[in-house]
């Protein structure tokens, strides 16, 4: 089997951004276009936090894991910072939230810039502040509904 992840042009989190328009269900191949040329320097994926590999060097199992991860990240709520929340600073980039910034809320209620946290969640699926595993927290949120 070949790659199940498409090769994006920018970086790994671009997959998240375009998720709405780029869903490939296997029937509509016109959206995909021609296969991308072989690239040595492409986006890097992190099957485990300390390992970086281009998509062509991922095992099938790692690709499935990363695809699932992207799906889970997309389930996490996002919002626009309006200044009413308690959080003042994104502890990843150490920049203050500005009104209009796109933020993502984790189940533990910690808030980050969407770009900052998505980049981290692709490496490790834990909250940087409380270390709570995000998938476990997501599941318990579902169970309590």
């Amino acid at each position: 089997m070949g790659n199940c992840l498409k090769q994006p042009n920018a970086d790994d989190i671009s997959l998240l951004r375009g998720a709405e328009n780029n869903q490939t269900d296997g029937t509509d191949s016109s959206l995909l276009g021609p296969p991308p040329p072989y690239q040595v320097s492409g986006p890097m994926y992190h099957p485990t936090p300390n390992i970086s590999r281009p998509v062509a060097q991922l095992t099938e199992e790692e690709q499935v894991k990363i695809a699932k991860r992207i799906g889970l990240i997309n389930q996490l709520p996002t919002g626009v910072f309006d200044g009413t929340r308690k959080a003042k600073e994104c502890v990843i980039c150490m920049g203050e939230f500005m009104v209009g910034d796109t933020v993502r809320y984790l189940p533990c209620m910690h808030t980050y810039h969407r770009e900052c946290i998505d980049d981290w969640l692709m490496r490790a699926f834990t909250c940087p502040s409380c270390m709570e595993p995000v998938d476990a927290a997501l599941l318990s949120t579902y169970n309590s509904l």
Partner: peptide
């Protein structure tokens, strides 16, 4: 290394 967090 292993337990690094970007919040540190």
């Amino acid at each position: 290394t292993d337990d690094w967090s970007p919040a540190l």
